[in-house]
Amino acid sequence: CHSECLGNCSQPDDPTKCVACRNFYLDGRCVETCPPPYYHFQDWRCVNFSFCQDLHHKCKNSRRQGCHQYVIHNNKCIPECPSGYTMNSSNLLCTPCLGPCPKVCHLLEGEKTIDSVTSAQELRGCTVINGSLIINIRGGNNLAAELEANLGLIEEISGYLKIRRSYALVSLSFFRKLRLIRGETLEIGNYSFYALDNQNLRQLWDWSKHNLTITQGKLFFHYNPKLCLSEIHKMEEVSGTKGRQERNDIALKTNGDQASCENELLKFSYIRTSFDKILLRWEPYWPPDFRDLLGFMLFYKEAPYQNVTEFDGQDACGSNSWTVVDIDPPLRSNDPKSQNHPGWLMRGLKPWTQYAIFVKTLVTFSDERRTYGAKSDIIYVQTDATNPSVPLDPISVSNSSSQIILKWKPPSDPNGNITHYLVFWERQAEDSELFELDYCLKGLKLPSRTWSPPFESEDSQKHNQSEYEDSAGECCSCPKTDSQILKELEESSFRKTFEDYLHNVVFVPRKT
């Protein structure tokens, strides 16, 4: 048989008469490798580009789960590009990614509803959504962080984005990388972005840091009482949809009607710091009717980097990364020049730590249904340095008659930039024990000054392991946590139920 035959053949030295091919099969003959313009397919066939392209389009058009959109890589027609490569849609070739590779997620039936953290986790790592997304989240724990972890990498949506009755959302900033909504599939009414009845939605994105392009379709905003109209108009300008909307697409009466839409800028007039305090004062603000001013709200939190936005980490279910302080308005003076500047002394802060701070007014709604208010920009203030805590785990070892090696770990709280350490030492008198000992005694162990690591005695271990207080009263049991108490109650309830079950099964009433 021919060298490319495997198993047997019907005619000697003829690659077209093989029972099976050793390498690849091409047009009725066995070959060692697939010549151009053919590609290896499933490690035994040679196919042309049209064959591989037909497989790709067949799966793409069917949208069946589990099928493969075949691509070409290293002269092979394979189910998908290997790690580190992405497909070129024009020629199906796998090309190296520039940075992290995109991950295209194809949605069944063309859309997916995100109504819980669990459903959001199914899209973790996706960068391109081939379909439409509907966000409908009523509640949950730590929602802002969970949504950002699972949806934060999405850069492109081919269909539309719909935010509907998501009472738990305060902001859409968890879509931190969303840059493009194509609108290839539109919501009824030709809408590519749809926001309806979101009672706590206050911000779409921080438009000073976020760009969003909507290729096709219109915007729809109705019944978002805490979303200011200025935020919607800003989205029109940034996304390129200005002029597409009709009169009733953006409701003037049901958007922002319960919001404090600040239209003035508060400026800080005085800032002073110490290692654990920050004193702030800002310019006074009074609405047209000074009785509408209820006070100020001061927001602050630790910020290692200057990239904080107002609604980071917030949701309507209680999660809030900001510390909020309510401040009463100052006494009002008739003389504008003698107006008191409101302020606040922030206490209990960490030394040498940068804080993000902003302040906003708290006002009631005027009778004319106009909203007044003022808010400052987010500023960054760093507390002063102070003395560091003591170095940890000092170790001293003498390696000769004239040297001592000293080692330690950095302090747990540096409280500033540590530039150097101060080492103090003092000579001590020799131990009298060394002169009084009889060095001729056998088995004498000389006193040693070398360091030995501390260890816990058996008594201390027994005390720590004991669940009861000892007789001397030195140790006591740790208080039980809520989960331990709940577990004990469940076990007790189970024992009672099981005992009742045994009584009912074992003891049967005697027939009379």
Results as ranks from 00 to 15, higher is better:
Lys103Ile: 13
Val104Lys: 08
Val104Pro: 06
Cys105Leu: 01
His106Ser: 07
His106Thr: 11
Leu107His: 10
Leu107Val: 10
Leu108Arg: 10
Leu108His: 11
Leu108Gly: 12
Glu111Gly: 15
Glu111Ser: 06
Lys112His: 15
Lys112Gly: 15
Thr113Gln: 15
Thr113Ala: 10
Thr113Trp: 08
Ile114Thr: 01
Asp115Phe: 04
Val117Ala: 15
Thr118Lys: 13
Ser119Thr: 07
Ala120His: 10
Gln121Cys: 11
Gln121Trp: 02
Cys126Lys: 01
Cys126Met: 01
Cys126Pro: 00
Thr127Val: 03
Gly131Leu: 00
Gly131Trp: 00
Ser132His: 09
Ser132Leu: 01
Leu133Ala: 02
Leu133Glu: 00
Leu133Thr: 01
Ile134Gly: 03
Ile135Pro: 00
Ile135Gln: 00
Ile137Lys: 00
Ile137Asn: 01
Gly139Ser: 15
Asn141Ala: 15
Asn142Cys: 02
Leu143Ser: 15
Leu143Trp: 15
Ala144His: 10
Ala145Glu: 14
Leu147Ile: 05
Glu148Lys: 08
Glu148Gln: 11
Ala149Cys: 14
Asn150Pro: 06
Asn150Gly: 04
Asn150Ser: 10
Leu151Arg: 00
Leu153Asp: 03
Ile157Asp: 00
Ser158Met: 10
Ser158Lys: 12
Ser158Glu: 04
Gly159Pro: 00
Tyr160Met: 13
Lys162Gly: 11
Lys162Tyr: 10
Lys162Ala: 03
Ile163Phe: 11
Ser166Val: 11
Ser166Gln: 12
Tyr167Cys: 14
Tyr167Met: 13
Leu169Val: 11
Val170Met: 04
Val170Glu: 10
Ser171Ile: 02
Ser171Met: 05
Leu172Lys: 00
Ser173Trp: 08
Phe174Thr: 05
Phe175Asp: 00
Arg176Gln: 14
Arg176Thr: 14
Leu178Pro: 00
Arg179Leu: 07
Arg179Asn: 07
Leu180Asn: 07
Leu180Ser: 10
Arg182Phe: 10
Gly183Ile: 00
Leu186Arg: 13
Leu186Asn: 04
Leu186Trp: 11
Glu187Gln: 06
Tyr191Asn: 04
Tyr191Ala: 09
Tyr191Leu: 05
Tyr191Glu: 08
Phe193Glu: 00
Phe193Leu: 10
Tyr194Arg: 11
Leu196Asp: 02
Asn198Thr: 02
Asn198Arg: 00
Asn198Lys: 00
Gln199Pro: 09
Asn200Phe: 12
Leu201His: 00
Leu201Ile: 04
Leu201Gly: 00
Arg202Phe: 08
Arg202Gly: 15
Leu204His: 01
Trp205Cys: 02
Asp206His: 04
Asp206Gly: 05
Asp206Ile: 04
Trp207Tyr: 05
Ser208Phe: 14
Lys209His: 15
Lys209Leu: 10
Asn211Ile: 13
Leu212Gln: 06
Thr213Asp: 13
Ile214His: 03
Thr215Tyr: 09
Thr215Arg: 14
Thr215Leu: 05
Gln216Arg: 08
Lys218Thr: 15
Phe220Ala: 07
Phe221Arg: 00
His222Lys: 01
Tyr223Leu: 13
Asn224Pro: 00
Asn224Lys: 00
Lys226Gln: 12
Lys226Phe: 10
Leu227Pro: 00
Leu227Met: 13
Met235Pro: 00
Met235Lys: 00
Met235Phe: 05
Glu236Val: 14
Glu236Pro: 03
Glu237Lys: 14
Glu237Val: 03
Val238Thr: 05
Ser239Ile: 13
Ser239Gly: 15
Ser239Gln: 06
Ser239Cys: 14
Ser239Pro: 02
Ser239Trp: 03
Gly240Asn: 04
Thr241Asp: 10
Lys242Ser: 08
Gly243Arg: 05
Arg244Gln: 12
Gln245Ile: 07
Gln245Tyr: 06
Glu246Gly: 14
Glu246Ser: 05
Arg247Ile: 09
Arg247Glu: 02
Arg247Gly: 04
Arg247Ala: 10
Asn248His: 03
Asn248Cys: 13
Asp249Gly: 12
Ile250Val: 15
Ala251Thr: 13
Leu252Met: 10
Leu252His: 04
Lys253Leu: 11
Thr254His: 15
Asn255His: 03
Gly256Ser: 11
Gly256Ile: 04
Gly256Tyr: 08
Gly256Trp: 09
Asp257Arg: 05
Ala259Arg: 06
Ser260Tyr: 02
Cys261Leu: 06
Glu262Gly: 05
Asn263His: 04
Asn263Thr: 07
Leu265Gln: 13
Leu266Arg: 00
Leu266Thr: 04
Lys267Gly: 08
Phe268Met: 07
Ile271Gln: 14
Thr273Gln: 08
Ser274Ile: 02
Lys277Trp: 00
Ile278Leu: 08
Leu279Gln: 03
Leu280Glu: 00
Arg281Leu: 00
Glu283Pro: 05
Asp289Pro: 02
Asp289Leu: 03
Asp289Gln: 02
Asp292Glu: 04
Asp292Ile: 13
Leu293Gln: 07
Leu293Asp: 03
Leu294Ala: 07
Gly295Gln: 15
Gly295Pro: 08
Met297Ser: 13
Leu298Pro: 00
Phe299Gln: 07
Phe299His: 14
Tyr300Gln: 15
Tyr300Met: 14
Lys301Asn: 13
Pro304Arg: 13
Pro304Leu: 15
Tyr305Gln: 06
Tyr305Trp: 10
Gln306Met: 00
Asn307Trp: 09
Val308Ser: 11
Val308His: 00
Thr309Phe: 04
Gln314Ala: 13
Asp315Glu: 03
Cys317Arg: 00
Gly318Arg: 09
Ser319Gly: 12
Trp322Cys: 01
Thr323Gln: 15
Val324Glu: 15
Val325Trp: 15
Val325Gly: 03
Asp326Ile: 04
Ile327Phe: 04
Ile327Tyr: 04
Asp328Met: 10
Pro330Val: 07
Arg332Lys: 10
Asp335Asn: 06
Asp335Val: 06
Pro336Ile: 03
Ser338Tyr: 04
Gln339Asn: 14
Gln339Pro: 07
Asn340Asp: 15
Pro342Glu: 06
Gly343Glu: 00
Gly343Phe: 03
Trp344Ile: 04
Leu345Thr: 07
Met346Thr: 04
Arg347Gln: 08
Gly348Leu: 06
Leu349Met: 05
Leu349Ala: 08
Leu349Asn: 00
Lys350Phe: 11
Pro351Phe: 07
Thr353Ile: 15
Thr353Leu: 07
Tyr355Ala: 00
Ile357Gln: 00
Phe358Ile: 09
Val359Lys: 00
Val359Trp: 00
Lys360Met: 04
Lys360Leu: 06
Lys360Thr: 02
Lys360His: 01
Thr361Leu: 03
Val363Asn: 09
Thr364Ser: 10
Thr364Asp: 15
Phe365Gln: 07
Asp367Lys: 11
Glu368Ala: 08
Glu368Ser: 09
Arg369Met: 05
Arg370Tyr: 09
Arg370Lys: 10
Thr371Met: 07
Gly373Ile: 03
Ala374Arg: 04
Ala374Asp: 01
Ser376Gly: 02
Ile378Lys: 03
Tyr380Ser: 03
Val381Ser: 04
Val381Cys: 03
Gln382Ser: 15
Asp384Phe: 02
Asp384Gly: 08
Asp384Asn: 02
Thr386Ala: 04
Ser389Met: 05
Pro391Met: 04
Leu392Tyr: 14
Asp393Ala: 15
Pro394Arg: 05
Ile395Pro: 01
Ser398Gln: 14
Ser398Pro: 10
Asn399Trp: 07
Asn399Val: 09
Asn399Cys: 11
Ser400Val: 06
Ser400Ala: 14
Ser401Phe: 08
Gln403Phe: 05
Ile404Leu: 01
Ile404Ala: 02
Ile405Gly: 12
Leu406Met: 15
Lys407Val: 13
Lys407Arg: 06
Pro410Lys: 05
